[in-house]
Design a protein around this nucleic acid. Structure first.
Lengths: 196, 196
DNA sequence: GTCTATATCAGGATAGAC
DNA sequence: GTCTATCCTGATATAGAC
């Protein structure tokens, strides 16, 4: 699965060759078919693997890293905002694992336009993501109504997907992308603050 | 070219088969090669065709449709805002030509992640688009500094690309997408208004 | 479970007639 | 300019031994 994720990041979902994947994993193509039945099976499992991994690292991993500014779990609005930024900017790092996941995620999304079978997993993972982001937004703006939080989260995550593809296609430098995301967060929080 | 656009909308850039395109156009595959040299040539021309078409309909077509609220060319802030909305929401219509263009554009973007040759055209068209949107934003917020307008335009167009893919992949209903875009425009305009 | 062939086929590209 | 026929590569998938 890890090898498959690497190949997808390198060649895309539609550029994945069973032979290349087999080589990456250091096994024969026959073995790949033995385990996954066919190419589509490989894809199904890999994409599931990728959404799982994305969910895992989008959530928090390391909490006590020396930011040290408060103590209470759950954090105040200030911590929440930092975590929100951290969480969203996590997608924009030039680190192999992140790049891999972003690429694969973008591929998954793009492929789903033409292959309805892929849509199920994707929809689920997207909803979870939106829900998480809405939760973080809610922690900085406790009085904002839930629908507004969700809408904000949909816009922020949607923006992230758009900018991510631009970044990966070389149309947008990483730092500029990060800057745009930071501003977007500010703007959304301002807007949420002015509701009511 | 129109046939090619249809095929790309149906199968994706990477799903385009020369034979299918030929059938769509009612000619032989050999003729396709006669005119375009190879598959990549087909793609180049089609994508150029698509960006041209997108530019054409993203700009204004029908100006005097009965909105009638002012007379001066260039329009006041109010007209500009309407035009901004119209222009951005144009991407979200369930009309074959639009769907075709959005699909092809998304494909182009996604393919460029793996095929650097595609990046040139894409970058140019993107810059034009951002520039146009920044111009419209500037007409509603004449005092906003240019860099802020550009950043807003980058976020709005980036959001559009993200939401568009979600829409086309069945993850986001059309009306909801439109609503999110409308809100995003409001929020960006508010933010621009509060600068200085 | 894993490998080395190998069958099979799809799809890009060309030859050569008209 | 346009077609029919065909070549040929590269990729999926399977057979059968170990």
């Amino acid at each position: 699965m890890e090898g498959a994720a690497r190949v997808i990041a390198r060649r895309g979902v539609r550029g994945l060759r069973v032979a290349e994947l087999a080589a990456e994993a250091g096994v024969s193509t026959a073995l790949v078919y033995y385990h996954f039945q066919d190419r589509a099976g490989v894809l199904r499992h890999t994409l599931e693997f990728i959404s799982d991994r994305a969910e895992r690292y989008t959530s928090n991993e390391d909490e006590g890293e020396g930011e040290g500014e408060g103590e209470d779990d759950g954090g105040g609005p200030h911590d929440a905002r930092q975590e929100l930024e951290r969480s969203l900017l996590l997608e924009f790092q030039d680190v192999p694992e992140v790049r891999e996941n972003s690429t694969a995620w973008g591929e998954l999304r793009a492929s789903a336009v033409f292959e309805p079978e892929l849509r199920g997993d994707l929809a689920g993972a997207t909803l979870t993501w939106i829900h998480d982001v809405a939760g973080l937004l809610g922690r900085t703006r406790p009085t904002a109504p839930a629908p507004a939080l969700t809408a904000s989260a949909e816009r922020l995550t949607g923006l992230l997907e758009g900018l991510s593809t631009r970044w990966l296609s070389g149309a947008l430098p990483l730092n500029h992308a990060r800057e745009l995301v930071r501003e977007a967060i500010s703007i959304e929080l301002d807007a949420l603050g002015r509701i009511i």
